[in-house]
Design a protein around this nucleic acid. Sequence first.
DNA 1: TCGATCTATATCGGACCAATATAGAGCTTG
DNA 2: CAAGCTCTATATTGGTCCGATATAGATCGA
Lengths: 177, 177
Amino acid sequence: MDVRTICLGILTRADATGYEIKKLFEDGGYEHFVEASFGSIYPALNRLTEEGLVSVREEAQEKRPDRKVYSITPKGQAAFVGALLKPLPEDKHRSPFVFAMLFSHLLPQDHVTAMLDAYIGQVEGKLGQLVEKSPEPETTGERFVAGFGQAVYVAILKFLRTHRAEIENAAVKAAAE
Amino acid sequence: MDVRTICLGILTRADATGYEIKKLFEDGGYEHFVEASFGSIYPALNRLTEEGLVSVREEAQEKRPDRKVYSITPKGQAAFVGALLKPLPEDKHRSPFVFAMLFSHLLPQDHVTAMLDAYIGQVEGKLGQLVEKSPEPETTGERFVAGFGQAVYVAILKFLRTHRAEIENAAVKAAAE
DNA sequence: TCGATCTATATCGGACCAATATAGAGCTTG
DNA sequence: CAAGCTCTATATTGGTCCGATATAGATCGA
């Protein structure tokens, strides 16, 4: 799922500047399952404009850099739907934390404990973000995605709370440090 | 978590060639939470060798390309543990499927159904791989990681089975196509 | 008033992936 | 038994993408 397709998707919801798209990636209900940086968003929007999949209107602001507000065109709509109709790339769940747990026997026990606490805190934070932030009348899709995320985070927390002792005991006892 | 660190981790378990490391990424219990391609593994191993973190022995084989078997050095061990003691990068769960579900209202209903079926099949496959493939006497870490993966996959399947109707009903009815 | 934070665009180096090239061994299947 | 596929094994390349950085005025709190 490349950045261009993701930008198109976001623009089906509402017009936006590159900056606003980036904010949606961080804090707009999109943050859990997709991501992109400025370094790919701006070039993507330029190319989409060249290809006629989006249009720009430049809003010159007083004493501010111009806002370039992007809108999706009918051609862009069609291209986006076309992309969703093709087989999608598989999920990628990349977790440095989980990988590190494979090597807990090389680490001092308090550090493994600290890693677990930090990770659990992180997941709790993301879960909280999902649970609390639903004042807006969401679409079915948004509700579904939020539910999906919650299910995953809850399962992770449950697993960690019931199994953390095992991995902590496998770590290097304090004496070794 | 860069490819060099991950390669070091794998080499703490056993000596391996670049090819074998790649296989472990695909099918060795590492596949669910880390990944790397040949295009990054080979350069990574070269650089690790230059830096003295791994060593190579070239096993010339009859009528076969040389096997370059890599071993981690004490310096490499220390570097690896050092990397695990620093704050780890956060998890990234990138899911084109979940993103697509945000746009189910733009898609024909049978296609949404097909996407759900395909995705569920994928997750079932990964879960099966985790459940079945544990004949070897695993380490605590391996058991923990496998359990973690199972917990996530089970939660996803449960959520999809209980909530798929909602998103299917939001899709474009057959008439529209 | 000083610094931090926010809006807003943009670029660059480097990391990384997907595809491809090479090449012989072994296995399958018609 | 030959053709084709898969497996072992290394390596490179084009292109995508991230992370950091630059710029610059506005706003806001200490």
